[in-house]
């Protein structure tokens, strides 16, 4: 189990080095989420699924961890395979990744 984690860590380090050398966008090279906030509209790209959903808290699975969005009257405007749009009053974003 420990060995598996170490291997993953190594793999990620190689990915990061390659991305830095080739100047790839991190969301492409390392499978990271891309979060765009425009006014009361939050767009999350590269998500892996919904863990929890209510009008005050939305928790999403992202590459290597999870993203928590806290706010008021939040609704999911649209959900697609890799994109998700949230509208409402966004108060806090918590990004927890294992990198």
């Amino acid at each position: 189990m420990l060995k598996k984690k170490e291997n993953k860590k190594k793999r990620n380090q190689i990915r990061q080095t390659v991305a830095d050398v080739l100047e790839f966008p991190p969301e492409v090279a390392m499978d990271l989420p891309k979060i765009t906030l425009a006014g009361q509209m939050l767009l999350v790209e590269n998500h892996k699924g919904i863990i929890e959903y209510s009008n005050q808290k939305i928790r999403l699975k992202v590459g290597g961890g999870w993203l928590e969005i806290n706010g008021q009257n939040m609704i999911l405007k649209a959900i697609r395979n890799e994109e998700l749009a949230i509208s409402g009053k966004v108060e806090k974003l918590i990004l927890e990744t294992g990198w």
Binding site: G49, I50, N55, L76, I79
Partner: peptide
């Protein structure tokens, strides 16, 4: 999540 996987477009989802 299943809806997303199946590639259906669900909009205006209100809790």
């Amino acid at each position: 999540n299943l809806v997303i996987q199946e590639n259906f477009l669900l909009e205006e989802i209100v809790w």
